[in-house]
Design a protein around this nucleic acid. Structure first.
Length: 475
DNA sequence: TGAAATGTTGGGGCG
DNA sequence: ACGCCCCAACATTTC
């Protein structure tokens, strides 16, 4: 019997993996493959990917196989592997980013190879949702209602008890040779201290969700308390499925562990769905404002300001604490992400795309859809975005959400024992910066009336792949 | 998933 | 006792 290829992508797990289960059902021997490609670009994400692949390979070895690792353009690598192994079918779970969809399109056109894609990564498949009038949802709440109305996500599948792996002598590249880990300098120490990539650790986090849900409704905006699941990088790489997370939360809700908390938590899970949906239907989301009049915003190109923001030395304690937490751990609390993003876009008037690039490079949970949609949300140029006049005051935000200054002192050691009022040299005056931003937005407002055709959905094949500049190494 | 400016109200000090 | 002023507290409007 000819083997089939199982192409691992953002589904680095064995449990509740729909395409993997379909591959197993064929009864044919399986060749598991991961192809490192141009989408695996961000520095922190590459660190995570390395360890997640190592974890997956271990799990596969316990079942008697090993992962074939390659790098390059997936359609070429997979065509070579199929030819060398005699496989005529490739199973994979779909991805919904423009570049991923192009890959799938090219693969499905290869002669003699059958690409079998499954919808697995999201609860609501993005092509399935339209408004009653046939349009696309642009506002979160109606989207949430409509996707919830589709019914509960499927009950998670168990990991296959056994897998029939193909014997082969296909060339594989050693994990260590793929260059996913940083060297000289090795900046990953804080990441190692903070995270355990891989499916077993991810499943454990779902088991430990109860205290998070109990405190979530009241304290989820408190970076000092950090009542968060920490699931985002695991979800990004598919070490757990969204269905597993959904059912994990609902199960706890049924057992009384925080009723309001579960609802608020699942709402966040659906923001992930909404972002993927927006990217699927508006492939230019990573690079162009959804509201075209924002092309006319008078952005600043002050490199020194950008560097100060990246390095956590803006002189605003809450902003600097967030940027240092990001640098050190590859993660930032969501409330602080909003604060630092508002500061970059509004106080410094630096294009949201610069911030998005930095986040894509430094976040372990960097995700093109979530990142693009969220930055556009902050900038006011996106769907259902924060209104442009909503300018965060960093000090007020700190008072509200880090009332004792614990978060700030944790990440800014020079403030230990001092009040944040003694923190030196803010690079801008917030009051003046706010005024400048509001005046700049008047330009945008003027364009809305006169100019600028609305953005309509376009086919992903016409869009450019996002440009994630690997700036982390250069810092 | 704001903040600042402006408006309104009401209690207390005081003539 | 009463009205006036002050201003904190809260509400509304505006950006």
């Amino acid at each position: 019997m000819p083997p089939v290829i199982f192409w691992f992508r953002r589904d680095l797990r064995l449990a509740d993996n729909i395409a993997l289960s379909r591959a197993v059902e064929t009864g044919r021997p399986i060749i598991p493959v991961y192809v490192v490609d141009s989408q695996d670009a961000g520095g922190a994400g590459r660190w995570w990917l390395h360890h997640s692949l190592a974890s997956l390979d271990q799990a596969l070895e316990r079942l008697g196989a090993s992962l074939v690792l390659r790098s390059g353009a997936p359609e070429r690598v997979l065509a070579d592997l199929a030819a060398a192994s005699g496989a005529d079918t490739i199973f994979c779970n779909r991805r919904y980013e423009p570049e991923s969809r192009d890959q799938e399109r090219r693969l499905s056109r290869l002669p003699g190879i059958d690409l079998v894609g499954s919808d697995d990564n999201l609860i609501a498949t993005p092509s399935a949702l339209r408004t009653l009038s046939g349009g696309y949802y642009r506002v979160f709440t109606p989207f949430w209602k409509a996707s919830s109305a589709l019914g509960e996500p499927a009950t998670p599948l168990a990991a296959p008890a056994s897998l029939d792996f193909a014997r082969h002598d296909l060339p594989t590249e050693p994990l260590d040779s793929l260059g996913l880990l940083p060297r000289e300098p090795d900046w990953a120490g804080g990441l190692r201290d903070t995270w355990t990539p891989g499916e077993p650790a991810a499943l454990q986090l779902i088991d430990e969700l109860a205290p998070v849900l109990a405190g979530y409704a009241a304290d989820r905006d408190r970076p000092d308390l950090d009542v968060t699941s920490r699931l985002s990088p695991h979800l990004h790489f598919g070490e757990v499925s969204s269905r597993q997370v959904w059912h994990g939360a609902r199960r706890l809700e049924a057992h009384g562990a925080g009723l309001a908390g579960a609802e608020a938590f699942l709402r966040q899970l659906y923001w992930r769905e909404f972002s993927a949906y927006l990217l699927y239907n508006f492939p230019q989301l990573p690079t162009s404002p959804l509201r075209p009049e924002f092309e006319f915003f008078p952005w600043s190109d002050d490199e020194e300001h950008l560097r100060a923001w990246q390095q956590g030395r803006t002189g605003f304690p809450i902003v600097d604490a967030g940027m240092r937490q990001l640098w050190h751990t590859g993660w930032m609390h969501n409330r602080v992400r909003m604060i630092v993003a508002s500061f970059l876009v509004k106080d410094l008037m630096i294009p949201w795309q610069r911030g998005a690039e930095w986040f894509l490079d430094t976040l372990v949970d960097a995700d093109l859809a979530n990142n693009s949609a969220s930055w556009q949300w902050v900038a006011g140029s996106g769907s259902d975005a924060a209104p442009y006049f909503r300018v965060f005051n960093p000090d007020l935000q700190a008072q509200k959400f880090d009332p004792n200054g614990d978060y700030v002192r944790r990440w800014i050691p020079e403030l230990a024992g001092k009040s944040s009022e003694f923190y030196p040299n803010p690079i801008v005056d917030h009051g003046e910066a706010r005024k400048r931003a509001l005046e700049a937005y008047d330009v945008v407002k003027g364009m809305r009336a006169s100019n600028a055709a609305p953005v309509s959905p376009v086919s992903s094949s016409t869009s450019e792949p996002p440009c994630a500049v690997a700036t982390r190494e250069a810092r």
